[in-house]
């Protein structure tokens, strides 16, 4: 991670009355895999469209390799995009699609052909060069779209929810392949997703976006274990947000312990609880729901202040029934102080 290949400075953008981006600052290092994570409408796509030159920001600067490209046309920037719907040209076959960028650069037919074959090999689609996009499956189209973008050797590759339309199994496989490709080519990736698992799996760094701002930027580990705000804790870690003693705490559901009665710290503990550990909390509540989700027991507890807390893990006390009153505990280190939005 040497120098910054892309810098965004104070980017702002409005569509009509809607302020889509409200001051975006970002430094991306050469070869980095950065994910923009956020729910739909948070401004992720607008951000990369501004990087690609498909939108012009109202304020701010885009620096690519130190050069100000804010007002440059898309064709003047060495940046390529993998579009959400792939945007393959329907009237061109796979080879023509992939070779499109090189043809514009007036490369010779021989050069284009070789580069296309190379790219097809990279995305494991050898032998498909004469097919039309309509003759390909979703996963294959995806690969063609990726090959078409990387053939131009962009400084930054922008990927707008590229795996969104694929089924779960294919998505997992493509995640690994994309990661492998990125390492091999050493191209900087900016990857958009609303799937926190995908973000945690693939990224060097994650930028969590909300309402046109970055809420937190950090490694997967930092974001997951040390969320800065309640939103990040909830969105990335599915954490419970609990208000106690004037503080806002994020506690992930696997760290929630339930007791039938209030206990002092050294008091006798129920059998399921590890005797070596100490616990804090002791908030009274009532069991609201109990269900099995993905092989795990999931219990929803309503605290007295109305907050809902979810406890979910293997081996949680299965005897709880809706309507029972309980006390909610967690280990001190499991509760992370976060900022309220």
């Amino acid at each position: 991670m040497s120098q910054d290949v892309l810098i965004l400075k104070g980017i702002e953008k409005s569509f009509g009355e809607t302020r889509v981006l409200q001051g975006i600052d970002l430094h991306i290092a050469q070869g980095e895999f950065l994910t923009l994570l956020g729910s739909s409408g948070c401004g992720k796509t607008t951000t990369i469209r501004i990087v690609a030159g498909l939108e012009t920001p109202d304020a701010g600067q885009v620096l690519l390799d130190g050069e100000d490209v804010t007002d440059k046309e898309p064709y003047q920037r060495n940046v390529n995009t993998v579009f959400q719907n792939y945007a393959l040209f329907p009237h061109m076959n796979v080879e023509e699609n992939i070779g499109y960028g090189l043809k514009l650069k007036k490369k010779s037919k021989q050069q284009i052909h070789e580069a296309v074959m190379e790219a097809l090999k990279l995305v494991q689609l050898e032998g498909y060069e004469k097919r039309m996009p309509s003759e390909l499956s979703g996963g294959q189209r995806q690969r063609v779209a990726i090959a078409r973008s990387i053939i131009n050797e962009p400084k930054v590759l922008l990927l707008d929810e590229p795996l969104g339309a694929l089924d779960l199994q294919l998505r997992r496989q493509m995640q690994l392949e994309l990661k492998r490709l990125q390492k091999k080519l050493g191209i900087t990736f900016i990857y958009i997703t609303h799937d926190q698992e995908e973000a945690l799996n693939m990224s060097d760094r994650i930028a969590v976006m909300k309402d046109g701002r970055f809420v937190q930027i950090g490694t997967a580990h930092e974001i997951y274990d040390h969320p800065r705000t309640a939103y990040v804790a909830r969105f990335v870690g599915n954490a419970n947000i609990i208000h106690v003693d004037g503080q806002t705490l994020a506690v992930r559901s696997e760290n929630i312990q339930l007791m039938s009665q209030k206990m002092d710290e050294m008091d006798r503990l129920p059998e399921n609880v590890d005797h070596q550990k100490s616990f804090v909390g002791g908030l009274p509540g009532m069991i609201k729901e109990k269900s099995f989700v993905g092989g795990m027991l999931r219990i929803v507890i309503a605290l007295e202040d109305g907050t809902e807390v979810i406890a979910s893990r293997h081996g949680i006390d299965a005897d709880w029934e809706p309507g029972q009153s309980c006390f909610v505990y967690w280990e001190p280190q499991a509760g992370v102080t976060v900022e309220e939005e």
Partner: peptide, 27 residues
């Protein structure tokens, strides 16, 4: 017409008129 195709063409290095000739006009 899917206008993202024109954006894709520009993104891949086409000037506006090139994107028009190779994509819009053809389609």
């Amino acid at each position: 017409m899917d206008w993202t195709l024109v954006e894709a063409a520009k993104d891949l290095g086409a000037k506006s008129w090139q994107a028009f000739v190779t994509i819009t006009l053809k389609l």
